[in-house]
Amino acid sequence: MVAKPKVAIAWLGSCGGCDEAVVDLNEALLDVTNAVDVIFWPVALDFKYHHLEKMTDGDIVLSIINGHVRNSEQEEVAKLLRKKSKLVLSFGSCACFGGTPGMANFRTKEDIFNWVYRDAPTVVNPQGNYPQVKTKVDGKELTLPAFYEQVYALNQIIDVDYYLPGCPPPPDLIANAVNAVLQGKLPPKGSTLAPHKALCDSCKRNKTKPQKIAIKELKRIHEIEASPDICFLAQGVLCLGLATRDGCGAVCIETNIPCRGCFGPVEGVKDAGAKTIAALASMLDVHSDDEMEKAVNSIDDLAGYLYRFSLPVSTLKKRRV
C-alpha cells in the first residue's frame, strides 16, 4: 500500500477559528482524511512536538499554519514545520498579515505587560509578578516561552510557499487549496490562493454605488440604521471592500456589517492602509481646511481601522517609542 501524503495543521498565535474553519469542511473533511495522513493537529489530535522532530526533513507534504508569531514557542514550531515540510501554506489573516493581534503593535511590550499584570482594574497582583522565561519553584526550574517585542506574520519568520487569507478562510477556498496540493496543480510559489480583484467587484450592493461617492462625515455602523441593500459607502459608512481582496463570500456584508479587510489588500498592493487612504480621501466631500480637518478628526482610530488585520506587514509595522 502506498503511503498517503502527510499533512500537518498547526496553530501559532491563534484564536482557534482557523482550525474551526477546517472542521467546517464537514463531510468533505472525511474525503481529505481519506486522501492524506494528518500527522500533527494540536487542536484536534494528540501529537507532540518531539514526534515532529523525529521525522525526516521534507517528509510532510503540506503544513497548514495559522496564527501570528509573538513568542519563542511559536517561532520554534514554525521553524520546525518549515524544516519538515515540502510546502507551507500561510493560513488565515494572522499568519498572512499578523491579523487582529497585530494591532498590539500599536503598543509596546512594556505597555502590554503593565496593563495586563498591573494596571487593568481586574488585576490583583500585590507582589508585582510579571511572567519570566525561567522561574525557580520548590527548587525546580519552570520555563515559559519568551514574549517578543512585536507581532510577526508567518513570512517574517519562515519561508512561506502559499497564502490563504481570511478570518477565517472560507471552506470553498480551503478545499480548493488542499485539492490543488493533492493534484499538484499549484500556481507559482508565493501566490495567494484567492481571487485577485477587490470585494466590491462581486458585492451584491455594488449596483447601488453612486458614480461619485461624496461623504461629508463618516459614520460608524452602529451610529446609523443601515439599509441591508445599499452600498455602505453610499450610506456614509467606511467599508473596506474597495481595497480588500475578494474571496470571503461577502459574509460580513450579508449580515449588514461593512468589510473590515480580513482578506488583506488586492493583488500587487503591499500596504493596505496607505492604499486605502487614496480611496478614502477621494470620497471625502470636504474642501476648506476646516472641513477637511473636521472630517479627518471625526474618524475614530483611523490607523486601527485601516490596519485592523495587517499592521505587522505594513510599511510602518509598529509604534515607535
Binding site: A274, L280, A281, S282, S288, M292, V296, L302, A303
Partner: peptide, 29 residues
Amino acid sequence: AGECHYQDGNEESKKRVLLLQKLLDACGI
C-alpha cells in the same frame, strides 16, 4: 485651492496628507 490644472488634485493630496498624518501619529512618527 481651486486652482488645480486637473480640477482638484491639490485638495486630494491635502486630504491624503491629513489622513496619513493620523497613521504616522499612531505609529509614533
